[in-house]
Structures are given as structure tokens and as C-alpha cells.
Write a protein that binds this DNA or RNA. Structure first.
Lengths: 141, 141
DNA sequence: CTAATCTCTCTAGCAACTATAGCTTCAAGA
DNA sequence: TCTTGAAGCTATAGTTGCTAGAGAGATTAG
């Protein structure tokens, strides 16, 4: 049986985060010791590792909740899980594209350089006037 | 003179967001009409456009605050502004690298495919066991 | 003059935690 | 057995950058 601290150590998830996951229903409420402390077993650890790994891959908690409930039903269809992952891949690719546009723009700003004072600083000038930008890097997070 | 709604329209920043920026001290408190409504002028509009543009480029509000206070002192050195932008470029590049690692891993998961039920779903299996991953895509946001 | 649209303040909510306060329980050494 | 220090408990508030709502007052078009 694991205390919350040991579970945290074994999984790399911080103690308050574990309690948080329990609170929002991502992890089941574990049994308690006589002194009211949480006691975990191997199944809890596996589930928490699953959550952590999915978080590392950028899945939002809601998606993880869905994936967990799928993994609880081994005979369910795999299509749903596949769909969730595809969705995530799509989101990641979009974020990459957006960030690459930003990267280019920032690099351009720096390349134009600053000479001495703010008064003739291209960086500040570009920030003040979007028309000086090479591309559209507009909204839509 | 612009009402807040017109300023919002001209800059593409939503009304509550403008009030929020004022509240956190990014924008100065404008004069008010007899009926207590905010009245803006061209200088306000320029400043708000600056903020919006910097936000689009991903700068956090704290960095924008620094950039604004620099741009208020035209005779100040440009090095600080340059540093802030370089920092942001660095942050963007790191996020891109991280996301590209995720992209690869997600694509791999999908390529391995799901055949029928969750029970033999590679996607769920990989999520449950980090050792099945090709790379480290560990923490550090 | 009235109706429709703005605008005002204030509060609460989103994701996904993190930090703090003030308390209790547990494990190990003297 | 006692004591001390670490680890655990609950509950609340803070983080970032907004967004949404309630309920009231202001302004403007017809």
C-alpha cells in the first residue's frame, strides 16, 4: 500500500496534483487508513501513470477522462480512442504552425535590430504597427 | 473621442478585455463623460494596438508592460527591448520543439492503429506505458 | 418620449494546477 | 514511552488572460 507521498514519488506527479485529480473525479477515491490518510495500490498507480503520460502528450483533462472511461471497457470500440488522438494531433499541428509564424516574425524583428535608443528601435516600431509585419499572425488560439 | 465600444471595434480587442487591461494597469484610466463612460483618444488607440499586436506575437502581459514602459522613454537604451524579444523568441522555439516531439509521438500512435476493440488498442496501451514511446517528451512547460 | 442599444460595476468562471494556513497523524530515535 | 520532524489532512486563494453574467444607469434613433 502506498501513501500519497510515495505514489507521487513513483509517478512524478506532485501530491497536491493527485488530490486535485481525485477532486475532479479523474482518479477514484482511495481507501483511507485509520488516521484518514489515503492508501493507494497498483491499480491506482497505473491509472495515475496513464493520466500523467497523456498530460505529457498534451491531452486536456476532459479528453483524458474520456480515454480513461474507454480503457475501463475493453470490449468497447477503438474508434473513439483513435478519434480523440487524431483530434489532439490536429490541435498540436495547428499550434506548431501558429508558433512557426510567430518565430519567423520575431526573428525578423531581431534581425532588423535596434540601434542605440528606443526612439529608433525597429522592435518597438514593429510592435506598434502590424502593417510592418511580413505575415498575418492573427488570433485564433 | 471614442467610446469603449468604438475603440473595441477599431482595434479588434473586446470591450471587457479593454476594461481588464485598464484594471491591471496596462492602459491608463481614460477621462469619463458626464455620465461616467470612458472616452478614448488616438493615443489610447495606439497603445491598445501595441498591446494587441504584442499579444498576437505571444508576449505575456508582464513583458508587454515592460515594453510599454520602454516605449514611453524614447531616449532609453534599446538593449532591454531587444532582450525581451529575444527571450520571447527563445520561448517560442522551445515550445515548437516540444510540440514537434509530441506530434511525432501522436502520429506514431495513430500509425500503429487500433483493431476493433479497446482490448487490443495500441493507442490506449501506449498511453498506459511510457516505455513504449520512441522519445522522451517529458515535462517542462 | 420611448425603446433599443451601450456602458457601468461587480462577481464568478475557465484550464490545470500551485501555494498557503492551520491542523492531525505517523515513523523513528533517545 | 516520549518526542520530534516529516508527511498528511482540509479548505481557501492565487496563477494567466481573459470571458460571461447580473442588474443598474447612459445615450441615441425614431
Amino acid at each position: 500500500m502506498l501513501t500519497i507521498g510515495k505514489l507521487a514519488h513513483e509517478t512524478g506527479v506532485k501530491v497536491p496534483t493527485i488530490r486535485y485529480y481525485e477532486q475532479i473525479g479523474l482518479l477514484p477515491e482511495p481507501d483511507r487508513s485509520a488516521g484518514n490518510q489515503r492508501l493507494y495500490d497498483g491499480a491506482h498507480r497505473d491509472r495515475l501513470r496513464f493520466v500523467r503520460h497523456a498530460r505529457e502528450l498534451g491531452f486536456p483533462l476532459d479528453a483524458i477522462r474520456d480515454l480513461l472511461s474507454l480503457s475501463d471497457r475493453p470490449e468497447a470500440s477503438c474508434a473513439a480512442a483513435d478519434g480523440i488522438v487524431r483530434e489532439q494531433l490536429h490541435a498540436v499541428r495547428e499550434r506548431i504552425a501558429r508558433l512557426q509564424a510567430l518565430e519567423e516574425e520575431l526573428a525578423r524583428m531581431i534581425a532588423q535590430g535596434c540601434h542605440g535608443t528606443i526612439a529608433d528601435c525597429r522592435v518597438i516600431e514593429v510592435l506598434g504597427d502590424h502593417a510592418l509585419c511580413a505575415h498575418d499572425h492573427a488570433g485564433g488560439d
